[in-house]
C-alpha cells in the first residue's frame, strides 16, 4: 500500500458516497446516467468475485463490500425508488457497444485464460469506458449539477492517482500490470475534457454548462 493508492481508494469511495448521498438527499437522480451505474455495478461484480475465493486483508475485503453495496444501492435508487426522476431520454448510450467489444478484448488480451482472470480483465477494460454514458448524457443535456461534477471529479481523480501508484510500485516493487496501466491511462484521458471544464468553471463558482 502507498499514499497514491490509499488516496486513490479514498477518492473513489468519496465519489461513490457523494453520488449516493446526492440521489438520496435530493430524492432525485436527474442528470445521472443509470447506464453508467449499471456498468460500475458490473465492473465491481466481475472484479470482486475473488471475495469468495481469497482473503487479502480486512481493508481489501471491507472496501470491496462497500463498493459493491453502494453500486447496487445506487442502481436500485435510480431504477426503482426514484425511477420517476430518471432522465431516460438523455441516457441513451447503447451499452452493448461497450460491453460486447470489451468482452471480446478481455478474451483476446489477458494475462491468463482462466475464468476469474478473464472476468478481472473484463472488469478492468469495462471500468475504463464505464463513464462514457454519463459523459455522453452531460453532452446531450449540455449541463450538470454541481454535486454531479464533484462526483465526476473524485471518480476521475481516483484512477489518475492509481497511475502514480503504479509508477511507485514499478519503481519500489518492480511490479507492473500492463493491462491495468493501459486501461487506467485510457480511463483518465477520457476525463481530461471534464477536468478542464471542472477547473475552469466549477472551481470558479460557475455552473458546468457545455457550449450548446
Amino acid at each position: 500500500m502507498n499514499i497514491f493508492r490509499l488516496t486513490g481508494d479514498l477518492s473513489h469511495l468519496a465519489a461513490i458516497i457523494i453520488l449516493l448521498l446526492k440521489i438520496w438527499k435530493t430524492r432525485s437522480c436527474a442528470g445521472i446516467s443509470g447506464k453508467s451505474q449499471i456498468l460500475f455495478a458490473l465492473v465491481f461484480t466481475t472484479r470482486y468475485l475473488d471475495l469468495l475465493t481469497s482473503f487479502i486483508s480486512f481493508y481489501n475485503t471491507i472496501m470491496k463490500l462497500i463498493y459493491i453495496g453502494c453500486a447496487y444501492a445506487t442502481v436500485y435508487l435510480i431504477y426503482m425508488k426514484f425511477k420517476a426522476t430518471y432522465d431516460g431520454n438523455h441516457d441513451s448510450f447503447r451499452l452493448e457497444f461497450l460491453v460486447v467489444p470489451v468482452g471480446g478484448l478481455a478474451c483476446l488480451v489477458n494475462h491468463d485464460f482462466s475464468f476469474l482472470e478473464i472476468l478481472w480483465t473484463f472488469s478492468i477494460y469495462l471500468e475504463s469506458v464505464a463513464i462514457l454514458p454519463q459523459l455522453f448524457m452531460i453532452s446531450k443535456t449540455g449541463e450538470a449539477e454541481t454535486i454531479t461534477t464533484h462526483y465526476l471529479f473524485f471518480l476521475g481523480l481516483y484512477r489518475a492517482l492509481y497511475l502514480f501508484n503504479w509508477i511507485w510500485r514499478f519503481y519500489f516493487e518492480g511490479f507492473f500490470d500492463m493491462i491495468a496501466i493501459v486501461a487506467g491511462v485510457v480511463q483518465t484521458i477520457l476525463y481530461c475534457d471534464f477536468f478542464y471544464l471542472y477547473v475552469t468553471k466549477v472551481l470558479k463558482g460557475k455552473k458546468l454548462s457545455l457550449p450548446a
Binding site: R5, D9, H12, D50, I56, S57, N60, M63, K64, Y67, H111, D112, E117, W120, Y162, N165, G174, F175, F176, D177, M178, I179, A180
Partner: peptide, 10 residues
C-alpha cells in the same frame, strides 16, 4: 513479472 498472482488492488 507475473501479475496474475497478487490482485491486491481494488
Amino acid at each position: 513479472l507475473d501479475s496474475t498472482t497478487d490482485k491486491d488492488e481494488l
